[in-house]
Amino acid sequence: MNVDEHIEQLRMMTFAQLKSEWRRVWRRAPPVSFTSDLLMRGIAYRLQEKAFGGLAAEIGRELDGIETLGKSARLGTAQTVQLRPGNRLVRRWRGTTYTVDVTRDGFLFQDRRYASLSTIATEITGTRWSGPRFFGLKEQAR
Rank of each mutant, 00 (worst) to 15 (best):
D4G: 05
N87E: 05
G76E: 02
E21G: 00
R92L: 13
T97S: 11
S33I: 12
N87C: 04
R84M: 09
W129K: 04
M40P: 00
G126P: 08
S36C: 09
A57F: 12
W26R: 14
D64C: 02
L89N: 02
D4K: 06
D37K: 13
L18P: 02
T122F: 12
E139Y: 08
K138G: 07
R88S: 12
R46F: 00
I7S: 00
T77H: 08
S33Y: 08
E49V: 01
R84I: 08
S36W: 00
R27T: 07
G76Y: 03
L10P: 03
S36N: 04
E49G: 04
P30M: 05
E67N: 10
L39G: 01
H6A: 15
R23N: 15
P132G: 03
S118Y: 03
N2G: 10
H6Y: 04
R128Q: 12
Q140W: 11
L69K: 10
Q48Y: 00
P85Q: 07
G86H: 04
W22R: 00
A44E: 00
T80R: 14
T14L: 03
L89V: 05
V100M: 09
V25E: 05
V3P: 00
F109K: 08
T97P: 06
D37P: 01
G65L: 03
S116N: 12
E58T: 09
F52I: 05
T14G: 09
H6V: 05
T119D: 15
Q110I: 06
D105V: 14
L10I: 01
A44F: 00
V3N: 04
R41N: 07
R41D: 09
T125L: 02
